[in-house]
Design a protein around this nucleic acid. Structure first.
Lengths: 107, 107
DNA sequence: CTTTAACATCGTAATATTGCAATATTACGA
DNA sequence: TCGTAATATTGCAATATTACGATGTTAAAG
């Protein structure tokens, strides 16, 4: 016990929760905002921008990337981080359909 | 180490992360959906609906309530859970403004 | 006043997350 | 090839989250 019991929920619910997890840490929100504000494909000034170590930023980037929210080159040197807009917007729609479904029927 | 360093981020970023945390667990998403689907102000069939113990559901409800997403009576017996629609929609707007701000400028 | 239904809270165990230092790995330039 | 800059990965330590049983607490029924 201690682990989330994802087996007992519908796929839609698990998808929403998994997506929310990406945004559930301020570092990841900040990283996404920073990347999206860069004119050109600049890379790890992220480490300088946000006050966390390179290892930690790299870990957060991995989480964001695993959710399909990044696009670019990821090998050795000269890496390029960009937002994967299509996937990003898919998540926005997922959230909005959840929000729009949820109404207040009582009180 | 181990704890999130919320002190180094802007308030807006922390707000988004805090809101996302509420939805970052499938049980809470399921609870919100269930409450919103009830015609009348029904209470803890939630425990029967979702396969978790009463103590666990109660904990999740506390998290949801702390985020300001519930409305109703919360004393002793005959409790009434409802979605606090205004706050709920505020969160929707918070997410949407974040999503809309985030663009892909490169690659 | 007692009982009971409906919750909340406490204590605790299991697991997940966060963060960093140290250590790979990789790509490019000298 | 060597050195180096730019990451990724590994291995902890600290903390947070999740889940549940047991135990309070409260309001209404009897």
């Amino acid at each position: 016990m201690g682990a989330s019991r994802i087996d007992i929920y519908s796929e839609n619910i698990n998808n929403i929760a998994a997506a929310a997890k990406v945004f559930a840490h301020p570092a990841r929100v900040a990283i996404l905002q920073y990347i999206s504000n860069q004119k050109s494909c600049i890379c790890n000034d992220i480490v300088d921008e946000i006050g966390l170590s390179q290892a930690t930023i790299s870990q957060h980037l991995k989480v964001i990337n695993s959710a399909g929210l990044l696009k670019g080159t990821f090998e050795g040197k000269s890496v390029c981080y960009c937002i994967h807009l299509e996937h990003f917007q898919e998540l926005q729609e997922l959230f909005n359909s959840f929000f729009n479904q949820t109404k207040s029927n009582c009180c």
